[in-house]
Design a protein around this nucleic acid. Structure first.
Lengths: 123, 123
DNA sequence: GTAACCGGTATACCAAAGTATAGTGCCCAA
DNA sequence: TTGGGCACTATACTTTGGTATACCGGTTAC
């Protein structure tokens, strides 16, 4: 005998628990959101640490957006701006260990995104 | 002896692989993005299936946004709009099994979001 | 000295996302 | 018959996100 099972989402949570979860999820999404953040993270991860190098690696990004997004990522402690006391000063952007903790999230997003793509484009 | 380890992001990927991954991640983020989508999913998951009921459960949402977001979620096959041939017609929004597959992603986002919150607000 | 590179900032603009407010057509109950 | 609920849509507006273009001060290479 087959009955239509209600599709629910995780265990039901009481109101405050639910609000807390929602805030956490929003926080995570906000950190990753924006047209360029992921590409910047990838560029740095792939070995580009200088402003101009990152700019060159990401097609069409403007210095304004790069500057903005670097600041946002730094505020979120995903990267650190390091000033070397050379002449002229050199500046490097490096991912922090905290950025590393994003890996699992990103892997899940990638997996689901790929699954979703198949689903929508008709396997 | 301690050396500063380079923080990299997953295994390095070649360019096409990387672009594919990026697209998948973007797809996933886009599905969840928007101020109201998660709350709508939660409302439906928690048993509200009618337009007005969902609207009442989500404070401050306007019917315009609810309508838009429901359409977006339906396009992404996360929910289905079911029209019952009653008088007057009743309409119900139900999550699909595909929505269920989002659970792991959302759990990861929630976990990381909570971790991040602690990190930023100074444990 | 002047042209070019680095690491950005400033100003103006444009487009997407979200809000506010009102109104539609249908049904039903009093 | 009129007032209310349901499931929305329409129009106008504001806010946020992103683009385009130009420029800045300091440093080196010619």
């Amino acid at each position: 005998m087959t009955v239509t099972q209600e599709v629910t989402f995780g265990e039901s949570l009481d109101h405050t628990e639910c609000t807390k979860s929602l805030m956490a999820i929003r926080d995570a999404l906000d950190v990753l959101n924006g047209k360029w953040k992921l590409q910047i993270i990838i560029a740095i991860s792939s070995g580009q640490h200088k402003f101009k190098d990152i700019e060159r690696q990401i097609p069409k990004i403007t210095p304004r957006m790069l500057s903005k997004e670097l600041k946002s990522l730094e505020e979120n402690q995903l990267l650190k701006r390091i000033v070397y006391d050379t002449l002229p000063v050199t500046i490097e952007y490096k991912l922090t260990p905290h950025a590393k903790t994003l890996e699992k999230v990103i892997a899940e997003l990638r997996n689901w995104g790929a699954l979703h793509r198949k689903k929508i484009l008709g396997r």
